[in-house]
Nucleic acid binder design. Sequence first.
DNA 1: ATAATAATAGGAGATATCTCATGTTTTTGA
DNA 2: TCAAAAACATGAGATATCTCCTATTATTAT
Lengths: 221, 221
Amino acid sequence: MNLLKGLEKAYYLEAYTIQSLFSFDISPFIQVFQFDKGDFIIQEGTEPEYLFYMVEGKAKLYVTHKNGKVSLINFLTPPIFMGEIELLNEEKYSKSIQTSSKCICLGISIEKCKEKLLADAHFLKYLCIFLSNKSTAHSTKYTKHQAYPLENKLAEFILLSSHQSIYKEKHTEISEYFGVSYRHLLHTFSQLSEAGIIEKIKTGYKVIDKKKLQALADEIK
Amino acid sequence: MNLLKGLEKAYYLEAYTIQSLFSFDISPFIQVFQFDKGDFIIQEGTEPEYLFYMVEGKAKLYVTHKNGKVSLINFLTPPIFMGEIELLNEEKYSKSIQTSSKCICLGISIEKCKEKLLADAHFLKYLCIFLSNKSTAHSTKYTKHQAYPLENKLAEFILLSSHQSIYKEKHTEISEYFGVSYRHLLHTFSQLSEAGIIEKIKTGYKVIDKKKLQALADEIK
DNA sequence: ATAATAATAGGAGATATCTCATGTTTTTGA
DNA sequence: TCAAAAACATGAGATATCTCCTATTATTAT
């Protein structure tokens, strides 16, 4: 992790200005962080220091269970707040965020800024909308995931995440995302292959029968 | 559903004043609703008219899937906002809320009040905290539910919901809450019985071996 | 370039959970 | 109070998913 200064800092502050989210001058309170691939932006159990706003990169929100299982709760892509829960409630971080590529984050010092933020209607309104969208997305995901077998959810996911009919996500990540074992994910992929819906290629899978895939996805509400 | 007037209305407004959540006079915008057991406070697909704040009763938040499955997302108990997501985003209701006993709700007219609410830092701060707690609770529930078998989750739930070692929830509801079949819930109850941890009685179950039950619950993060 | 690490792949058997079917008991509404 | 509806109970067989194991590629770091 690097704290950017000088020209680099200025560049990102200008390219991704977030002043419009606040009704007071936020610039004195912002740092620009650069996280390398694999770095932790936030670690479970540590004390929050910054409210982060990711402007570039891609990260993963994780939680680790007692039994050693890891749940990938979500993929995080800009623009997104991170650590806003801990800004609102005096709590340690309960989840981890790890980058999956280089990430640029604006960090607003909680210590210096908390009171101002919690009194700023403009920011609070934005945050409320952000939180409510997050909540909706989350509850949609999980109620779906509870009500349908992996085959349907995977069909939906392949359609969403493939480009030009090519799917190339990492099995290890996706199995954690769906909360199923690696083995079972593989098994479901080969089912789809055997049904002639997708086809294994060097770099991943190719969608052969989009209609059937869509039909599987459409079984989900 | 009844709109209360006169003395009844005055009684609830006084008993459960929510003026402290707002920095403007909210009283002109509040109605008092009484819902009977089984009534829908909110129905999927309908247009939001009120931001509700439940002060008495108990209700259930549901979603219905294409495949006919129903997920009981949560039990709602006072004090709680309902319909706040739809206040923030211009959307129809995406879930249903049905009472499981008589409920008293304060209803704030969205049409008359939306602008004032979304500019009130005091209210927005409260709402942010509410939403963030909801989000945390939700994500905790679902990551747990994905990572542990019913036996553990049920053990935790029995401990939480039993009084004086007596558990008496409805199987039909609880199976929907956990997103498992009725059959499987029953099966898990009899496992716990066979292990001598609980015992079936007329009105429900009695906790026999609290330590073992706690141990099962403790396997969960 | 090479060793270490992470990701892919698939077999085999166990277990958690589901669906369907059927009967009994309790609760509820007219 | 009686019939209908909801809730409880349980068997049997199917299926979704898991764990453990063992190889074979890719990637990454020194």
